[in-house]
């Protein structure tokens, strides 16, 4: 699994997603994502349409969505209050 980072999809986030990502067998689950992408780009690659404003917690530190993923990063996508997803993309 070298060269990859991982998104952790929590039960809470999964409950707000219309479609569970294909690599996600159970909840919570770890989805491998390519290092070198930003978190925002990785979400687009996975077609992960997020239902509310989220902030990523990367290896225990809060980061912007523009953060460039490094190998072995563990990224929790945490839902905040408000934010919305005005395209009705659930």
């Amino acid at each position: 699994m070298g060269g990859q980072a991982h998104f952790i999809i929590s039960r809470r986030l999964a409950s707000l997603l219309a479609q569970t990502p294909p690599d996600c067998a159970g909840i919570p689950c770890r989805i491998p994502v390519p290092a070198g992408l930003s978190i925002r780009e990785a979400c687009e690659l996975l077609q992960l349409r997020l239902p509310a404003a989220i902030l990523p917690l990367v290896n225990g530190a809060t980061q912007d969505l523009s953060y460039i993923l490094q190998p072995d990063d563990e990224v929790y996508l945490l839902i905040q209050l408000s934010g919305g997803c005005p395209h009705g993309s659930l």
Binding site: L50, A52, A53, L55, D64, L65, S82, G83, C85
Partner: peptide, 15 residues
């Protein structure tokens, strides 16, 4: 202005 609500392009603030 809530910085962390505006990081998502799909969010209402960005719209």
């Amino acid at each position: 202005f809530n910085d962390s609500f505006a990081t998502s392009e799909d969010g209402d603030i960005c719209q």
